Simulated assay, not measured.
Amino acid sequence: MDIRDKVVLITGASAGIGLATVRRFATAGAKFALVARSADVLKHLAEELQSQGSDAIALPADVSDPQQVRGAIEETVRHFGRLDVIINNVGQAAVGTIADLSPDDFRKIIDLNVFGPIAAMQAVIPIMQKQGGGLIINISSVVSKMSIPGLGAYAATKAALNMISDTARSELVSENIRVITVYPRSTATDFGKNALGTPRVSQQRREGSPMVDTPEFVAEKILFAALHEPDEQYMDS
């Protein structure tokens, strides 16, 4: 898809991979609906983009709440008249071995990492059907293809998102709605610091990471995926 003048909604837009993706897509000429919980940060980011000539609106929302997700998507369409690309980027980890993982933490990340994207997809699919197509990009993780001690819960949520993406891709292909799954590796953000669960496990994981990408590197891959529309986008391809 040619991104110039396309309306792009990004969740988790206030920091990390989401923020880097906003800035990279801005260079490609996108218009933005910025979604995150940090209202002040989003407001300043929207103002920054507007000062640079990009049309952007700030839509503070908790993506784990389906009603807030639907509200953000509806407001995007009211403002721009359409929604061409949605990037389900926001996510959180819960660390801990299977023996000591908190069920409450697991439920929280399921709500955010799985039901959040599902709510967004269910809200945006009818819109894209009416406008003749669109692009859904779900940000997964390479750990969903691995078995890493302490990250089983997080990997499980991303594995669930993978299957949702694969199934939706098949279901929507005839309606020109394309679904892409992106698989970041370990990335230099505050993601690990914000993980729920046992800090000791999280710290061991960060220290043992063989490769750490920059958010800008991942954002470049996300833009490449939007432009070329592979079914899956890995960081080494």
Rank of each mutant, 00 (worst) to 15 (best):
D2G: 11
R4Y: 09
T11Y: 09
G16I: 03
I17M: 04
L19Q: 09
A20P: 00
R23L: 04
A28F: 11
A30I: 02
K31A: 05
R37M: 11
S38Y: 12
A39C: 06
A39F: 08
A39W: 13
H44G: 13
A46T: 06
Q52C: 13
Q52W: 01
A56M: 00
I57H: 03
V63Q: 15
G71F: 15
E75W: 02
T76L: 09
R78L: 15
F80L: 10
D84K: 03
N89P: 09
V90C: 10
Q92D: 02
A93W: 00
L101K: 12
L101T: 02
L101M: 12
P103G: 00
R107T: 11
V114F: 12
G116L: 00
Q122C: 08
P126F: 07
M128I: 06
Q129F: 11
Q129D: 03
K130Y: 02
G133Y: 11
G134Y: 01
I136E: 14
V143N: 00
V143G: 01
S144R: 06
S147Y: 06
I148K: 07
Y154M: 03
A155C: 04
A156R: 02
K158D: 01
M163G: 10
S165M: 04
E171M: 13
L172I: 08
V173G: 04
V173D: 14
I177W: 07
I177D: 09
I180G: 03
T181Y: 10
R185E: 08
R185L: 12
T189H: 03
D190G: 01
F191N: 02
G197Q: 11
T198R: 03
S202N: 11
Q203L: 10
R205K: 12
G208P: 00
S209M: 11
P210K: 04
D213F: 01
P215T: 00
F224H: 13
